[in-house]
Design a protein around this nucleic acid. Sequence first.
DNA 1: ACATTAAATTCGA
DNA 2: TCGAATTTAATGT
Length: 235
Amino acid sequence: MRSFPREQIQEPSLHDVLRQSAWGSRLPEDVLIRVTDATEERHVAAGELVARAGAPARHWIGLIDGFVKMSVTSRDGRLSTLSGLASGAWFGEGSVMKAEQRRYDVFALRDSRVAFVPAETFEWLRRTSFPFNHYLQQLMNARMSLFIGLLEHDRLLGVESRVAHALASLLDPDLYPFASDVVKLNQDEVGLLANVSRQRANVALQTLQAAGFIALERGGLRILDIDRLREFSVP
DNA sequence: ACATTAAATTCGA
DNA sequence: TCGAATTTAATGT
């Protein structure tokens, strides 16, 4: 049999993960235990679906660890990536609250650890917990600014700015409380997020590197100046 | 689209 | 188990 000398790091338990999450940290322990018990956890391999467009939304979904993209396929089969989601992201609350079908496919871009909070539990939290509602408002507000900013960039700005914004959005503290400055995305995946070809993403990334905003590494990059990256705006 | 380079995997002692 | 050889993936132009 083979042995795996490298990856022997113990994963934190689901309960610990939830307790440290942006919303779980606001809840009393007994509530959190109830939520943990109801929540199921899955590992999703890179390339697999986390959620399927058209399926009923029965869960609020948390990305404990990994990277995931939201995308839609149009009727003629064209694929468009709408947004990437990094570790610590909680999403899908919109469809759950409206008790409707999922609007987007969610694909794992790398192996991911995912938590599924049942809709009933989610609704119970909404009915009973003030702090949880406060968190939800903050989350939805952060998402709103993200998408408005996205539209703005998409329509008015050039490729380097779109790439810059796509990267900056991955460090949004409201959406990803535990984000590190190391973004483990290859240039292909950066291209997907900014809606540009891999080759063009490469050129844009090098421009951003020359400006001192990021440092390129193999298989990823390091964010050096998040503020200037966020504000970077050229037509 | 092609060339280069870094990383991962296989192979042979 | 070590390092050289080969394959594969990411990057740069």
